[in-house]
Design a protein around this nucleic acid. Sequence first.
DNA 1: GTCTATAATCGGATAGAC
DNA 2: GTCTATCCGATTATAGAC
Lengths: 224, 224
Amino acid sequence: MTNGSPGRTERAGRTERPRAGRSGRTGRRGGDSGTREAILDAARKRFAAHGYGGATIRGIAADARVDPALVHHFFGTKERLFAAAVRLPVVPGELISSALAAGAGDPGSSLGEHLVLTALAAWDVAEIRDTFLGLLRSAATSEQALIMLREFVTEAIVGRLSAAAGTADPAQARYRAALVASQVVGLGIARQVLGLEPLAEAGRAELAAAVGPTLDRYLSGDLG
Amino acid sequence: MTNGSPGRTERAGRTERPRAGRSGRTGRRGGDSGTREAILDAARKRFAAHGYGGATIRGIAADARVDPALVHHFFGTKERLFAAAVRLPVVPGELISSALAAGAGDPGSSLGEHLVLTALAAWDVAEIRDTFLGLLRSAATSEQALIMLREFVTEAIVGRLSAAAGTADPAQARYRAALVASQVVGLGIARQVLGLEPLAEAGRAELAAAVGPTLDRYLSGDLG
DNA sequence: GTCTATAATCGGATAGAC
DNA sequence: GTCTATCCGATTATAGAC
């Protein structure tokens, strides 16, 4: 019922795959057919939409127009498929570093605003959003995914941010960075998961102006 | 494996149930044995820990020391059990109203600090925490639970809070209240779900001093 | 009210032909 | 690389005895 594909005749021909970069070097080995990437794409979307437990190999295979057995053929188990699907092509820590650098060199707008804009822009990239959503939804149910998400937030976000905190004490710096993370994650969940209405449709600039100062204060202001 | 109860002999005698209120009026009908409440308790904890999809009727029944068939006998389906389990005994909107009233009458500390302290205190009440966690974890997977959570946040939190926003425009008031909700929810998730370390062990007063001013600014400050 | 079957379904995983 | 067939475990839900 979930897969009411009208026809299901054309399924074998997998020639319509979009060729990636191809920068002079020959793309891949000869025997390849793009199926693996199609499965990964479908998996990312399914994990993002339903979480680890809710996503099924059968459903992912259907989305990728592929036989379920092929998923096992390529990835072995569901766990390994998940691990492969949430491997980000772009390291988010680098985004933060860029935002920190940009914020430092721009006296016109604050560091906090740069961080919010960076986060909002990242949410708009399908692969990043799906990866983070998949991690988030899965962490609700799977202990393994929770650990991955915690490490992700701790290392990539808090780790980088604590360098920008206005404190010499490392413990204080991590505390400040964690406060920033709590507001950024909360904003993302409210907008993207909950769909909290006045927030979900607000513009980037508006949100940056609203919560940027909060992050500035968490990073280097007076905390009471 | 999850349920390595050592013995499982004593299971029938259900006489040790704690009597609730009992305010003059005879508690319940004669045929009662407290099983229903035991099931609800176990269900709340299981839904909080594993979400809707992850929690099983069998597991809930095991926790309640009861036969799985009894769960169906009392609640019919898993969905109806969930609905019954996440029905809060205390309406959280009233907590917010109290915090608003207390904050208004206390010039010593700000309204935002009162709100943070109220939220942190609510997290410490087992039934409230379990209900909210159950809703949260389930919303990650179940569309139905997501709707319930959204209505919960929208009506109980944003609805009440927007009354306290320093704006005449109702749309602006809801926007301000939603910003508050995003920070409060983010803090709760970071602490209770993610277990983000510097935050999870921070004291209530410290957190109130840190994020209280954020809420004050969202409610009635300059947003850019 | 409580429990023992048991039906019906679904999902992950494997073996092996082509 | 791809697909068919199948096994196995887990789960919701029901019927009906006591």
